[in-house]
Computed example of a mutant assay.
Amino acid sequence: MDIALFSPSSLFVDSDGDGTSAEEGNIESNQNFEERRHRFPGMELLIREFSFHQLNANLLWPGTFAFIEWLVHHRSWMDGRKVIELGSGTGALAIFLHKSFQVDITTSDYDDAEIEENIAYNCQI
């Protein structure tokens, strides 16, 4: 199994408007998506999820929300850290960590262009 590593921080638009656009390099796909609003501590995120994906990268797992609650209660542990997320799926956890803690985060998942494009899309919205 091949694993891809990439940093969603490079997918966010810079304040001057430069950066990767979700429309750039749009990948042809037969996948269907659903956008759902998810409540996280201090924010609500609109996350596009696959209706189905063969690699199971389709939905936010319930453990994501429990882990985020734990991180919020241990906020000081995040100060100045570099983070690697294994099995990023939609990128929701990475987006939350970037917005809440301004951490340097690298995500990983299967080496799958559709998963990477979906994470990039979620970072844009």
Rank of each mutant, 00 (worst) to 15 (best):
T20R: 03
A66D: 07
M1F: 11
I105V: 12
L59E: 12
R37D: 00
D14K: 03
A113I: 00
F6K: 08
G80S: 06
M1I: 02
T107N: 03
I125Q: 15
V103M: 04
Q54K: 10
A92L: 05
S76A: 10
R81Y: 02
R75Q: 08
W70Y: 12
I84K: 01
G91R: 06
N118I: 04
R48D: 10
W70G: 01
L97S: 00
V103A: 08
F50D: 04
R37V: 06
S29Y: 09
T106S: 14
V72Y: 08
G87V: 12
H38W: 13
D79L: 10
V103P: 04
E44N: 03
N32M: 03
L86S: 10
R48L: 09
Y121Q: 04
Q124Y: 15
Y110H: 14
R36Q: 07
L45I: 00
H38S: 13
F50N: 07
Q102W: 00
I3Y: 12
S29V: 01
S76E: 09
T107C: 15
I115F: 11
A120P: 07
D2P: 05
I47V: 15
S29C: 02
R48G: 05
A22V: 00
S100C: 14
L45S: 08
V103L: 09
G80P: 07
Q102P: 00
W77C: 15
I125M: 14
E116R: 04
D18G: 14
I125F: 14
E23T: 14
G19V: 04
L5M: 14
E34Q: 14
H53A: 00
T64H: 11
E85L: 10
A22M: 02
M1H: 13
A120H: 11
V83T: 01
N118Q: 06
F33K: 06
S9F: 02
V72L: 08
E114C: 02
G19F: 03
I105K: 02
G19L: 07
F52S: 09
L11I: 09
G63A: 05
W77R: 15
T106P: 12
I3Q: 07
G25M: 00
F65D: 10
L86G: 07
V72G: 07
L55V: 02
F52H: 02
I105M: 06
R48S: 12
H73W: 05
L93M: 14
E117R: 10
W77Y: 14
L5E: 10
I27Q: 08
I47R: 11
L59A: 07
N58R: 15
E69T: 05
Q102C: 02
S10C: 00
H38G: 00
E117H: 14
E114N: 05
T64C: 13
D104L: 09
